[in-house]
Design a protein around this nucleic acid. Sequence first.
RNA 1: CGGGGCGUAGCGCAGUCUGGUAGCGCGGCGGUUUUGGGAACCGUAGGUCGUAGGUUCGAAUCCUAUCGCCCCGACCA
Length: 445
Amino acid sequence: MRLSRYFLPVLKENPAEAQIVSHRYMLRAGMIRQQAAGIYSWLPLGFKVLRRIEQIVHEEQQRAGHIPMLMPTLQPADLWRESGRYDDYGEEMLRITDRHKRDMLYGPTNEEMITDIFRAHISSYKDLPLTLYHVQWKFRDEIRPRFGVMRGREFLMKDGYNFDLTKADALHAYNRHLVSYLRTYERMGLQALPMRADSGPIGGDNTHEFLVLADTGESEVYYDSAVTDIRLGARAIDYDDHAQCQAVMEEFTALYARTDETHDPAAFAAIPAARQRMARGIEVGQIFYFGTKYSEPMGATVVTADGGRVPVHMGSHGIGVSRLLGAIIEASHDDKGIIWPEGVTPFHCGIVNLKQGDAGTDAACMEVYTALKARGLDPLYDDRDERAGAKFATMDLIGLPWRITAGPRGLASGKVELTCRRTGLTEEMPAPDAIERIAAIYKDI
RNA sequence: CGGGGCGUAGCGCAGUCUGGUAGCGCGGCGGUUUUGGGAACCGUAGGUCGUAGGUUCGAAUCCUAUCGCCCCGACCA
């Protein structure tokens, strides 16, 4: 993309309403625009990152064998009356009446609807196990939305639901989700720690939240610092291997790590003092096993091999897709702006033309631009007629991890600059070498 | 929902107390000079002062109502 033809309304000054760094930078970088309290338009740059995150979520879910689908944002109230949650959910649920005076609601989650779909089409144990998921907009009418997309009312969320014949199978689905989530977050350049949590209105007794450590997090967390040394890395995972998924789950959850709701001071005190940590975290996902809580009242049953009929064991599993943008920025920025991890960056590389209008510099930049595109990469070429300082400031703000800079001075000796946003390190090299380096960096991402 | 604050140009703000031609900076547009870390100068466009009533010769300013947004708390992915 050429910046002169893009839509990137950056702000030089900090908007007054933004209190935390991710909200400030998302507004300043022209990623979002607030339309009402907790409701945002996604401008092109923000939309690009949102889509990259969503894409990673899809890839990792399908890698784990989960099946994508799409349920609507509006749901009939009757389904929620069946489960008893229509009254339980309270004011947080946005209730709407259609022209025929039918009670509708803007879905805050989809347990009822997926259970309805399941019971309509699945009747035999032979159709299990089954895990369906979708990525869809949700609405929870928070009393006080804040922190930009981190605590909006409308938010994009991946939610998945597993259906299993036995509790053991459902617990494997739980483990499988835990592992796939770890992999998802790692691909985004994030460390999200699974912590034992409270199940809240969804119910159930087996649940973990995934938390990104950040001072601006809304949850207070307590953990053994050794948990931050564990990585999934490149190890091969067989999602059908119950023992392996169980082992990974145990590896990541054996050490003490809890949110304040489940914090146990006595157990915490047993950790070596030097490893006790108290911090704040942003919740970016949660997994639940809740057994037959919905299948029983809603009649989601299957016929077993011996001809009996049993309610299925279920779990639900969520990732806060839109919220992840905020969490990633909170975890990765400096005083100049955002620093995107390569896995989610809106553009792979920025190109700065230091002397727009200079025939040699223009040609060199276009060459780099076309070469990167030919490699399947997505560069952002700043071809505006601006001064160097303004271009650098924009690139730093929007946080592209790599920048190629070309000006008459360097080009005289046949060189461009390659700069790493995170370290600030700049190296001079011929343009083809810089292109090669960028291509190599993104080869496995 | 309790407490506090704010709505004036795309963004950041002054002006409101004490009523009298609606301002400043950034951004936009045109021009000149500049050109390696958010340039300087000149010119220019852009506002029913959130909305609705009221008081007054006259309201951004005073009064009433209402809507919206932000912050602290309770709540929450």
